[in-house]
Amino acid sequence: MLPKVNQILHMQINSIDEEESKIEYKSRIADITDTAIVIEVPLNEKTGRLKKLYAGDELSTFFISDGGVKNYFSTTVTGFQEDVIRLIELRKPEPEAVTQVQRRNFLRVLAELEMAVKVSDQIHFIAVTDDVSGGGISFICEPQVPIGLNTPISCWILVPFKNGVIEHIPLKGEIVRIKQLDTGKQLAMVRFIEITDRDRQKLIRFCFERQMEFRKR
């Protein structure tokens, strides 16, 4: 699914500046051509300031379709138009490059990310994720680690993005399943029970970027 004229496009700039990469902008889609999505100058909702974009800027974007479904895609600034107001041309994605994310059906990707897990003040350990989504994760740990079904845990995950930024994402979860692996280690599957919307969006963005990498291989 592709966006339509007059829809709002939400975006973040893939910047090596960590603070800049966290800022979300929004813009109205003014036109759609065979090769471009043409938008108005983006606005920072919090400050009310317009954001100047440059040719070659890489953006992580999403638009909201019926039912509140978020549709994510990556794009690049390809040019500009001088009309009554200045307009910005973005590379139009292929329909299959748009990823839909519903709150109850998060995209899940394979990923080995470093994480710290805390079960109690006395029990904490380092683990590696097996897969990641906006609603939960699974991780691999040593068999002697004392965890069981419904065990509440606190986690900190190191999440690297395409732009070189590494985020430190905290969350709380609950173990919903444990599987013994042939390697002798155990795989724990976790459902998030406490995570900020901002941090959840970071994980969704990571999953989207990772899926795009897989598709290019």
Rank of each mutant, 00 (worst) to 15 (best):
Q100M: 11
E114D: 14
N105S: 12
E194Y: 03
G164Q: 04
S74I: 00
Q102E: 15
E24R: 09
G68S: 15
P95G: 04
F208Y: 13
G134P: 02
L187S: 15
E20G: 03
I157Q: 10
D131H: 15
R28S: 00
V145A: 11
G148W: 05
E82C: 11
G148F: 01
T33Q: 10
S133H: 12
R217A: 09
T151E: 13
I23C: 04
D199M: 14
K216V: 06
I178K: 05
D83I: 10
A188H: 05
E45K: 05
F80W: 07
H10S: 07
Q102P: 09
G79Q: 07
K46N: 00
Y25V: 04
G135H: 09
M115P: 00
M11Y: 00
L113M: 04
E213K: 08
P95A: 10
F73S: 11
I195S: 06
V119N: 12
M1S: 13
I137R: 06
V38Y: 01
F125P: 10
F192D: 03
E89R: 07
I178Q: 05
K162I: 14
D31V: 12
N14L: 13
I16Y: 00
E112K: 15
S133F: 11
K185H: 09
V5N: 10
R215S: 13
F62V: 09
C141T: 13
T61M: 10
E58L: 15
N105V: 12
E58F: 12
I195Y: 04
G79Y: 06
I169N: 08
M11S: 12
R103I: 14
